[in-house]
Design a protein around this nucleic acid. Structure first.
Lengths: 251, 251
DNA sequence: AACAAGGGATAACACAGGTTAACGAAGGTC
DNA sequence: GACCTTCGTTAACCTGTGTTATCCCTTGTT
């Protein structure tokens, strides 16, 4: 059940079969299912447990008094909602389902046991948090400096790489593709644009042959071209496998 | 020397005199001084130690290939640059001095000793990281949803509260003020606006009586009015003192 | 089969904010 | 004291993006 998480963490460090068993177990304790547009938790809630996305897409978002909404992160299978958030008394944002969702609810005590029991898993969780922070910084840059087409292209590049790192892309025939179960309105909330302009921008990306988007499937004919348009530099995702390799001497 | 950090962490939990002594010691091991516009570290560097801002202002920033620059965070005394960043192999952004700066360089081993030695300090560091993340999410929202005057007003509100939480504001005469050693160009890089439009926006804020900004001093005649313009909600700063109080039984 | 609802696509128009350029004030240097 | 550089200010003009309003298509419902 924790397949995606394990696969993601192994971008950072190899895990022992013990580590994997521990994660599998934690992820199977309690599984919650939500319909799309339901919230996993809301701003103001007390953090109760760690949520691990098992299946489906979700988003972090904040809503201003007057209703304007910003999606601050897109969450895909394998994403952990804030390993240490339990330290805070109240959530300062909400997380909602984009598609129907299965979420593992992992008690904070279980997380603490895991991190105390395995230095490797503890470091892997840290790495995971650091990457999340790096993504947030990149989003700030994206919203602050990139114009519409660059911004959307950048988001597509990021999603493609993140999905690939958990095995959720198709790359047969040299033309990579992935499922994007997101409406243009949600894309607008994520990029700080209006829906109309998201649509215009998508049209332009199609005309320029940067993407093919039919139904829920996005195909990227030329990843390099898309990255060039986006001024995309993948270093912030830290997918370089350069962390410490699994050392067989460690338990 | 670690005065500001201690004061900030005590927003979350009371610290014992032992905790404070440990922090003081760590902060005095090695102090580095930089001139304004020098970098503490650059994108691509290996993280070597944890940097604690003792005195002066700094900023995290990212630069796109074509030179566009986004400031993703403003750092003030008491701010720690990424307690756990040493897990990553390369920095994905730079941190530069805005004013002349003193920075304590704390070895990663020292940080690990501290967190292993004191559960309270460990939690306090986590709280600190979580607040930094929350600020990053708020900046995403700021850039994505707020228009110019709201955006600048929001930044001023945030800075005021953060400075106040480390004792760096003046509140005599019911009219709070603080030192803002930041140029309009840097403000532009932080808010994703052009310098010209930052200036226009500042002028409007002055006309509307929201701020007085002379030299490096900003005065806020009516904080509530400023917060209203900014659609500001302070919950993301988690300054509520609601964390666990200091328990005398803990070491 | 008829209907409703959500999502995508377009067009026309408006305006917030970017760009360029020029000038002045303040502060640092020799 | 003269010079230079950085920063703030302002004006004129331009453009990217938001707004409003339709229309169409798809999908699910009864």
């Amino acid at each position: 059940m924790a397949f995606h998480l394990i696969r993601k963490l192994e971008q950072f460090t190899r895990l022992s079969s013990d580590d994997k068993r521990i994660l599998e177990q934690a992820a199977s304790l309690k599984v919650r299912r939500l319909g799309s547009r339901e919230d996993i938790f809301r701003e103001g809630d007390k953090p109760r447990h760690i949520n691990l996305i098992l299946d489906g897409w979700a988003c972090r978002y904040k809503v201003l008094e007057d209703g304007r909404r910003q999606i601050t992160a897109l969450l895909i299978p394998g994403d952990l909602c804030d390993v240490h958030m339990f330290i805070l008394t109240r959530m300062d944002h909400s997380v909602g389902a984009i598609t129907p969702l299965s979420v593992a609810e992992i008690p904070t005590d279980t997380i603490l046991e895991i991190t105390h029991g395995s230095a490797r898993l503890s470091r892997a969780f840290w790495w995971n948090s650091l990457v999340e922070e790096a993504i947030a910084r990149e989003w700030v840059t994206n919203l602050g400096q990139r114009e519409a087409i660059e911004r959307v292209a950048h988001l597509f590049c990021e999603l493609f790489l993140r999905l690939r790192s958990v095995g959720m892309t198709n790359s047969q025939a040299s033309c990579p593709s992935f499922e994007l179960p997101v409406t243009q309105e949600q894309l607008a909330d994520a990029t700080g644009m209006s829906t109309v302009h998201v649509n215009r921008t998508i049209q332009e990306m199609r005309e320029r042959g940067l993407i093919v988007w039919k139904g829920k499937t996005v195909t990227i004919p030329d990843l390099e071209a898309l990255q060039d348009v986006a001024l995309f530099n993948a270093n912030y995702l830290h997918l370089d496998h350069a962390g410490q390799a699994y050392d067989a001497n460690e338990p």
